[in-house]
Design a protein around this nucleic acid. Structure first.
Length: 559
RNA sequence: AACUCCGUGGUGUAACGGUAGCACAACAGAUUUUGGUUCUGUUUGUCAAGGUUCGAAUCCUUGCGGGGUUGCCA
């Protein structure tokens, strides 16, 4: 009798277990709080899987809340794409869609409350003065000359800030905490700034906007969030987060817990850098299949299930780490190996003529759609006298470990016949243009012949007369070095010049004309591919999602 | 050298004072109508030094190393 090991939980789920056990909470409420100022990427996927995953596991709720407190950077365009990406990943916020801007009235009311309590004041120092008086990591700051102004005066000024009497930057509302605090966030943080800008939801109702620190915890409290999960860079903000909750009449007490953000080698993950890749044209857009954005990997053909599996395996911890890209690719291959229907496609064709095959004969060969999934059934693939095979699958002068086609050698055509190469035909430049072969009629379907003869390799093929053509886009990693972020120079210095190779005139079996958008298939022996959004009926375009593991490539490299 | 968080194979992650395990990667072999998949095996680890303890990755001390923080961004 084997004991089923209890699956280990990350430290956040352990905290939740305890909060539930002690009765501190009787259910969980988490939230995913993106700012609508950019596209979601794999790092967000980690957070989404955590927050929505907890809701699923504990029967709790997960809110989608847009942190829209900075109208100069935010836009509805991003709101829509973010929702789409979360749905694609497989999560659902139900009717718990919120915006921090929904709370602007309450937040204003609470700001007035703080002023009345003597815990906030209107500061008329310029931004430069404030910076100078903040002190630094080693030394304490200097209190503002406006810090102890009468409460009534701050109340009046704050009301007039709201009324639009002052230009941007003229004054701010600050909390009165401690200018000597070792945590800089506690040195009288700004609560409100004046920004005369139209907000994507509140329009021109406001010309003062609350800061992140003043908004986030109170929004959590208003939504009765129990566990507010964020990345490590907010660790230093937790003290402030708690300060607001302690000094305001909030309806609940959420707890902020920080975890380490996702890092992947051979890629960059910061919004700024991704934006730069797009604006400077190093990639075709946010959804370029080489981008780590969710729309990018979707277009690349990565299944959402693989992303969820990946997030599960990398886990949640507090220490910074860099995950191997191979781990992601492995998750992708695992799902695709199980699910993707197989087809044959020849990317770099070389003509094969089967001399002893009847000139006008066409046989419909039965091919297995997915050996991992018998219920996927079979399909018919036409076989004829003239075929295309992969140029790479033939070598005129092969090394000892090369098992495929070469002069005098025999291979199996998958679901076809055994063929033997009898003659190599070259053009004036010595370039191989055609292979003359013979086939063994007793090997129909690729069966081993009765004489016990075996072949060491099986290769893919397409009937020349029946093939359809397509453009194939082959992607490799965007960066050549493991940590393009680090070291000297720009991360752009590490861009891989060969991250995209376009092949035109690839020969595909006819069924590939009908691959549905969003479906990823396997080209046998080559890898996984999906149709691109630019693919059209007469002009098919496929993206390479990931290659198959290639033991031959390794053996070849080792000599 | 302020405050704070964190150090487990190549990478990531478990072990909650009691045999350092798992995944990925790498390597070797078996199977195979995909040089895929699958299966088997191998290599490699507790940052360091002290201390507490019958027993320490785990607790304590010191050192070393890494991250974060000086926006009217989030």
């Amino acid at each position: 009798m084997s004991v089923t090991p209890t699956p280990s939980k990350d430290f956040i789920r352990e905290i939740i277990d305890e909060d539930l056990a002690t009765g501190k909470h009787d259910s969980t409420v988490t939230r995913f709080p993106p700012e609508p100022n950019g596209y979601l990427h794999l790092g967000h996927a980690k957070s989404i899987c955590l927050n929505f995953g907890i809701a699923q596991e504990y029967g709790g709720r997960c809110h989608l809340r847009f942190d829209d407190t900075n109208p100069t950077k935010e836009d509805v365009e991003y709101v829509d794409s973010i929702k789409e990406d979360i749905k694609w990943l497989g999560f659902d916020w139900g009717n718990h869609l919120y915006f921090a801007s929904d709370y602007f009235d309450k937040l204003y009311e609470w700001a007035v409350h703080l002023i009345k309590e003597g815990k906030a004041y209107v500061d008329e120092q310029s931004a430069a003065e404030m910076k100078a008086n903040r002190g630094d990591l080693q030394s304490p700051g200097t209190e503002s000359p406006y810090r102890d102004r009468p409460i009534e005066e701050s109340l009046d000024l704050f009301q007039r800030m709201k009324a639009g009497e002052f230009e941007d930057g003229r004054m701010v509302l600050r909390a009165k905490v401690d200018m000597a605090h070792p945590n800089l966030n506690m040195r009288d943080p700004v609560l409100y700034r004046i920004v005369h800008a139209e907000h994507h939801r509140t329009g021109d109702k406001w010309c003062i906007y609350p800061m992140y620190d003043y908004t986030h915890g109170q929004s959590d409290a208003l939504e009765h969030v129990t566990h507010s999960l964020c990345t490590l860079e907010f660790e230093n903000h937790r003290l402030l987060y708690d300060w607001f909750l302690e000094n305001l009449p909030v309806p609940s007490r959420p707890r902020q817990i920080e975890f380490s953000r996702l890092n992947l080698n051979y890629t960059v993950m910061s919004k700024r850098k991704l934006l730069q890749l797009v604006t400077e044209g190093h990639v075709s857009g946010w959804d370029d299949p080489r981008m780590p954005t969710l729309c990018g990997i979707r277009r690349r053909g990565y299944p959402p299930e693989a992303i969820r599996d990946f997030c599960k395996t990398i886990g949640i911890t507090k220490f910074q780490s860099t995950n191997d890209f191979a781990l992601l690719e492995n998750a992708v291959r695992e799902v695709l190996n199980r699910e993707a229907p197989r087809y044959m496609a020849v990317l770099d064709p070389i003509r094969v003529v089967i001399a002893n095959y009847p000139e006008s004969q066409v046989e419909e060969m039965e091919a297995v759609n997915n050996p991992e999934k018998p219920e996927a059934g079979t399909r018919l693939v036409p076989f004829s006298r003239e075929l295309f095979i992969e140029r790479e699958d033939f070598m005129e002068d092969p090394p000892k470990k090369f098992f495929r086609l070469s002069p005098g050698a025999e291979v199996r055509l998958r679901s076809g016949y055994f063929i033997r190469c009898e003659e190599v035909i070259k053009d004036a430049n010595g370039e191989i243009v055609e292979l003359r072969c013979t086939y063994d009629p007793t090997t129909r379907g690729g069966e081993n012949p009765a004489d016990g003869r075996k072949v060491k390799a099986t290769i893919h093929w397409v009937s020349a007369a029946h093939a359809i053509e397509a453009e194939i886009r082959l992607y490799d990693r965007l960066f050549m070095t493991e940590a393009p972020d680090r070291g000297e120079g720009s991360f752009l210095d590490h861009l891989n010049p060969d991250s995209l190779k376009v092949i035109s005139g690839a020969k595909l079996e006819r069924h590939l004309a009908a691959v549905a958008p969003g479906e990823t298939v396997q080209f046998e022996r080559l890898g996984y591919f999906c149709t691109d959004k630019e693919s059209a009926a007469g002009a098919l375009v496929f993206n390479k999602t990931a290659g198959l593991r290639d033991a031959w490539a390794k053996a070849k490299d080792q000599g």
